[in-house]
Design a protein around this nucleic acid. Structure first.
Lengths: 142, 142
DNA sequence: TTGACAAATGCGACAAAGTCGCATATTATA
DNA sequence: TATAATATGCGACTTTGTCGCATTTGTCAA
């Protein structure tokens, strides 16, 4: 497998936490950096040449999530999906072809969250806004 | 267990689908009608006197969901939660006490969905908007 | 460059959530 | 009340994820 060396930024984040830059860790980060959101099993399959233990993959995903390097998506269905942490955004999972697309959201959404906090007198630390339906390719066929 | 007889409406929905009005089915619907969102395991435990098989509960939840009588919530975490289908709404799960509260959302949200569909040229059939954070009771303590 | 120590890994067993096929039981209705 | 469709129990199985522990690997300072 081709191993891109991790960016300076990632290396320093790892160093700050006294975390090592291991081949497995790099492989997972690189894989996610180049692809759509993947489930743990997707990652295990994709890296089967590297022969990474299942438990290691799960541990790694948990760890990278804590570090804020990747994000965990709670899409409809049983599995969690992971993707490289970019700017915050949301997804559509197609009920026909099961591809996951990133959605463009009107700016309004941020304001909305503030309103919700105010109306309900609570402290929102996290939200999960995901969609399912038909992607633009599949909606032509039905 | 006290068995309220199901409403006419529910009976007719069941009849339309040639589904039977069985004690187990009634027990599950009645239970959900009287409580906060519950996981499958919560339901199994709550109905342990009725001694309903696990598989039956899962099958029933799936079926009631298809009928539109209950809704499946995808909250952060591994389990799914179920609640009686009321008007569409959203939840906050408290990261401290884990209670699930229904949130009041500004009307804006509906319009937002239409905008998202338009901007992204897709067909949204379902969305999942759930929150985690601190409920109004717990936010006093931290 | 190497040795020591912390961090990462593999392994295998375990757990929780959910599914399936099949034999049996229950329900609606003619 | 007989019958045909539906629901249920049972148990094995799958998937997703976790854990403890022994071993290996990465880092850093001497």
């Amino acid at each position: 497998m081709e191993q891109h060396s991790p960016s300076k930024k990632i290396k320093s984040i790892l160093a700050d936490r006294k975390a090592y830059t291991t081949p497995h860790r790099q492989a997972i980060v690189n894989l996610l950096a180049q692809s759509k959101p993947m489930s743990a099993q997707d990652i295990i399959s994709a890296l089967k040449k590297a022969d990474i233990n299942r438990a290691t993959v799960y541990r790694e995903l948990k760890f990278l999530k804590e570090l804020g390097l990747i994000e965990e998506l709670q899409l409809p269905g049983r599995k969690k999906y992971y993707e490289i942490q970019k700017h915050h955004h949301h997804h559509l999972i197609c009920t026909r072809c099961h591809t996951i697309k990133q959605l463009e959201l009107p700016r309004l959404v941020c304001k909305l969250l503030a309103d919700i906090t105010y109306i309900n007198n609570c402290t929102i630390t996290n939200h999960n806004l995901e969609f399912s339906g038909l992607c633009n390719r599949c909606q032509k066929y039905l």
